[in-house]
Simulated assay, not measured.
Amino acid sequence: MALPPTAASASVLRSLRSEGVSVSPVSDGIGVLDAVRARDPALIVLDVELPGPEQGAVLAALQTEVPNVPVIAVTSRERRAGLIGQLRADRDDYVVRPFAVDELAARIRLRLRLGPPAENGVLRHGVLTVDTEFGDVTVDGQGVSLSPTEYALLMALLTAPGEIVPPDRLAREVWSEPASANLIQVYISYLRRKIGAERIRTVRGEGYVLEA
């Protein structure tokens, strides 16, 4: 875990260790690469504002050195846009500072459960298939044409298949800014029409679940 030594990072460490997760903290960019080579981690949390080398370069180096290891990037809202293009849709994730400790812990648990990365950039969930390299989406073998916003919404749901994704997370990941509940519902409706209404379940007051 590559986070600067703050009260927040100490809280994250305590939370993860209390759940039985083995954590090896480092406090600078050089230390991240050294730790990866020495410890063979299952997952990397990388704060893009760590001291040391430019963290975009550190992220790229990590993806090359350990291509099957997921990275969760911690970023500020200002740096988010430049970071997202570097993340692998089938493998990586991010949180925006300030974040809740339980949110980061939940994302770590999810990434650790996902297993190997998608084969050849293809993600599958039930009859739904997404080719992340070309942006192609099929449902039960039939091609589906999505708008850029619909595709981004599907990918946000697909990062947590079978789990509740809250509206505020969808707003952050799809629109990069506050989005009204009504706007999110409208695009959920659009997406349901294209991939099947039964594949997106609404959990009232909590969010949406992508079903298999």
Rank of each mutant, 00 (worst) to 15 (best):
K194V: 08
V144W: 09
S176G: 02
R37D: 12
L153R: 09
G52V: 06
Y187E: 13
L43P: 04
Y208C: 03
L43Y: 02
R201V: 12
G141K: 06
A57Q: 14
D92N: 06
F99A: 11
Q142L: 13
P70D: 10
A197I: 12
V21G: 13
E211M: 14
P161V: 04
A61M: 04
I164G: 04
V45I: 15
R192Y: 07
D131R: 11
V137G: 13
S9H: 03
V71N: 08
T159C: 08
P148L: 00
P161S: 13
V209T: 04
L104R: 02
L146P: 01
V165M: 07
R17W: 12
R204H: 14
V122C: 03
V74A: 11
D47E: 04
I164V: 15
D34W: 00
F99I: 08
P167C: 05
P5A: 14
E206V: 01
Y151F: 15
H125E: 02
E54Y: 06
A57M: 10
G162N: 14
S176Q: 08
V21K: 02
S145H: 04
Q63A: 11
V165C: 07
A181P: 05
R88T: 10
E163A: 10
P161L: 08
P67A: 05
A61Q: 14
E78D: 12
T202L: 13
L128F: 06
Y208H: 07
D136L: 09
